[in-house]
């Protein structure tokens, strides 16, 4: 067997015949590689630059001082509390839905799937109006509640509802994919071994899907943290009660850019920390490979 035909020098004449004179395979590869590297660098720069600018444009001492501002403290506390509660609600409500949609087929499933995706497509302000129409004082459900003396708009509950509405699709979609990725064979094996559906879910399916579920929960958390349009429409803007970080930033921006910058920075840093924390915890908890 003559291995000489695999020597690189002989490849070039081939390429010249196919691609025409003056063509160089190695050069083309080099151009391709630099092009790709450039594309990656540009994308990273485009994302990193605005974030870096936040840090560069706010002087450290004003930022640290602004941290003690009650506006900042209230907004931070409110955002953390509502987003955490929202994520919990979304996970508890969304996991069964995701599992059922991953495994079973039932009449109307298409409609349910579309409904789940709807809040993603809706502009947040529209979502806010829709929530008002349903749960506001004059709303379809709201006016019954109002008769009972319960009013949702302009309360912290409204903030949570708005956040749940806009962020649940992010979790449910991811959870559904994660459940679908769990090989049916595992479920079948568990059931033949005598495990009930519930036992199988908690001991087999959930642990295998958990990484995807957590990633979905992080996305829901992040979305709820940044939620603005639906919140300001449905819950309003009141310090300590409904003024979450994004609302506080927008309000402050109109008067005091320094406070707004500080809030923006805090939001970015906190988001990063939360996401990093959850990722490290997950990696430590379940280091499993798929068969």
């Amino acid at each position: 067997m003559d291995l000489n035909r695999f020597k690189p020098e002989i490849v070039e004449p081939y390429s010249r015949i196919i691609y025409g004179p003056g063509f160089n395979l190695r050069l083309r590869n080099k151009i391709l590689k630099t092009g790709l590297a450039l594309a990656i660098c540009l994308t990273m720069a485009f994302i990193a630059l605005p974030v870096a600018s936040l840090f560069l444009k706010s002087p450290l001492d004003t930022t640290l001082r602004s941290l003690h501002d009650p506006v900042v403290m209230d907004a931070l506390r409110l955002s953390m509390m509502t987003s955490t509660l929202t994520t919990l609600i979304v996970v508890l409500m969304g996991t069964p839905v995701a599992y059922v949609n991953a495994r079973f087929h039932y009449p109307g499933k298409e409609i349910v799937d579309s409904l789940i995706d709807l809040p993603v497509i809706m502009p947040p302000a529209v979502a806010g109006i829709a929530l008002l129409m349903a749960f506001g004082r004059m709303g379809i459900v709201g006016h019954y509640l109002n008769a009972l003396g319960l009013s949702i708009a302009f309360t912290t509950l409204a903030v949570i509802m708005a956040q749940v509405f806009v962020s649940s699709p992010f979790y449910i979609r991811q959870a559904r994919t994660s459940f679908e990725d769990v090989d049916l064979a595992f479920e079948n094996a568990a059931r033949t071994l005598g495990a009930s559906r519930v036992y199988t879910f908690f001991h087999v399916i959930l642990p295998i899907a958990i990484n995807g579920l957590i990633s979905g929960a992080i996305m829901a958390f992040a979305r709820s943290l940044g939620e603005f349009g639906a919140t300001i429409m449905f819950a309003g803007n009141f310090q300590g009660r409904t003024q979450t970080m994004p609302l506080a930033i927008y309000t402050a921006m109109q008067g005091d850019m320094d406070v707004a910058l500080c809030l923006a920075l805090v939001l970015v840093v906190i988001s990063f920390l939360v996401i990093a924390l959850v990722k490290t915890l997950t990696r430590r908890m379940y280091r499993n490979a798929r068969t």
Partner: peptide
């Protein structure tokens, strides 16, 4: 006062 709006239209 239940809310401080950022535009009067709202």
């Amino acid at each position: 006062i239940v809310s401080e709006e950022t535009t009067v239209n709202r």
